[in-house]
Design a protein around this nucleic acid. Structure first.
Lengths: 249, 249
DNA sequence: TCAAAAGTGTTATAGGTACACCCATGT
DNA sequence: ACATGGGTGTACCTATAACACTTTTGA
């Protein structure tokens, strides 16, 4: 059987055909990992943080940052740790997207991985290579190199999930300045959702939404009419979310 | 540490505080399971198939049907197997919803579980207790007993996911007869989405949707005006799905 | 002829789309 | 004065919601 060759479970006495007599210990011969799709946004460009692997398997390949989950570590905490190892960011929530569990997805053994995503400001990142990575770089979503494992699929699924999450959860707050213009707001959505909006109509929708509050300030030093600045009000948003609010673009 | 007491990893030499020196084998001391939320629909009622546990932990508690994933088994295949063990159904796709990975969620060791859901016709089920279950019964979604593990949370998340999936994927085909009336169709959505629709407006939406085809047949032996019968056309639906179709109720 | 559910039509309103146009600023 | 992006208004069109009404059957 093909799968047999790509797995090393030789330390157990498990025989494939006698599946109902597998000793309980055999089940505890597997591991789980998390893989993080860290999206970065900056000036109308969507990027992903990739690492270049420093060890086998797939040495030198670009891959999503990820790691095995420690025995005493919650799944969510493991994802947060990976983000912290690569960046200076804390308190950025990672969202779980999907578990990938094909038998042969990892050449060294049975490893199920759980994919997480986050959206951050590109400039916030300090891409220092950790011990399992030679290098770490932002890649435009439009030019992704060949990736290790099944990471191409994972990235694709997470990109789709990002588009769904962004309209209902304010994960975009990490990507805009505290005080932002409506144009910045619109461009961010246009980039991530990969479509364009009419300026006037977009603004009408924003005006109907109380959690985006216009400030008494304006831009300065711009060579055009200064824009009003807006801020996000998390308390008011909370009430919206409870009613099932989503941006209906 | 509280977690320490609820886990049994004594076979490894791992010390909590020295997490970076954990031997690779320690990671392969964990297991994964699948838990299946099998929703059943019948005559305006939504139910869930629960089993009564026959073994510790949580013996005699009601729980979601689930099992450990076999070493050579894909995650999706494990979910399908659980469904097959409890029912006579094949070819019913299970949809992955979420992975639950809290350290202490399983009293016997580190077990991450991946939740799946399916929607089936209640009558199709043959609730025979398998070796790990004393009993298996349909429970109305409105009256759910105390559940084992974190299954209450899992059920809740899956119920929410069902509402989201039902409007974009035709998982409801398993629940309606091959030839169905628009009233049956409407009642099914009303039950699952827990809201009501105006008959006339609902039908207007259906008429705009080409993958629901009216047949040249009608009901017989009903003591009221016979309803036209409709069928689902998977080929036409495929084109709709590619354009991102969802029912906007 | 009545009950019951099928099926259609009407209207008022809300919301979306596609524009055109004016405004404030720095150079 | 003009280039640049900010900001507003309008007119058209379509979608939606609420409702009343007609139709077809079995009993």
């Amino acid at each position: 059987m093909a799968l047999r060759n790509s797995l090393d479970l030789s330390k157990t006495s498990v025989e494939k055909d006698d599946i109902y007599s597998i000793p309980i210990d055999a089940f505890f011969k597997s591991a789980f990992s998390v893989d993080c799709v860290i999206f970065g946004y900056h000036e109308k460009e969507l990027k992903v943080l990739l690492i270049q692997r420093g060890t086998d398997p797939f040495e030198d390949f670009w891959a999503l940052p990820g790691d095995l989950v420690y025995p005493y570590e919650d799944l969510d905490a493991a994802a947060a740790r990976v983000l912290n190892d690569l960046t200076t960011l804390h308190e950025i929530p990672m969202r779980q997207v999907h578990a990938f569990g094909k038998v042969d997805r990892h050449p060294l053994g049975r490893v199920i991985t759980v994919a997480y995503l986050a959206l951050v400001e590109v400039q916030d990142i300090a891409p220092l290579a950790s011990n399992w990575a030679k290098d770490a770089k932002w890649h435009s979503i439009k030019r992704i190199p060949k990736l290790a494992f099944d990471h191409k699929q994972i990235l694709q699924d997470c990109h789709k999930a990002l588009k769904e999450i962004i309209v209902s959860e304010p994960i975009w707050t990490t990507v805009l300045p505290k005080k932002f213009t409506l144009t910045q707001f619109q461009e961010m959505f246009e980039t991530i959702l990969q479509r364009e909006f009419d300026k006037g109509n977009f603004r009408k929708k924003i005006n109907g939404v109380k959690f985006l509050k216009q400030l008494d300030e304006a831009q300065t030093n711009v060579r055009h009419r200064p824009s009003a600045l807006f801020k996000f009000d998390p308390k008011i948003f909370k009430a919206y979310k409870e009613k099932g609010f989503v941006f209906e673009f």
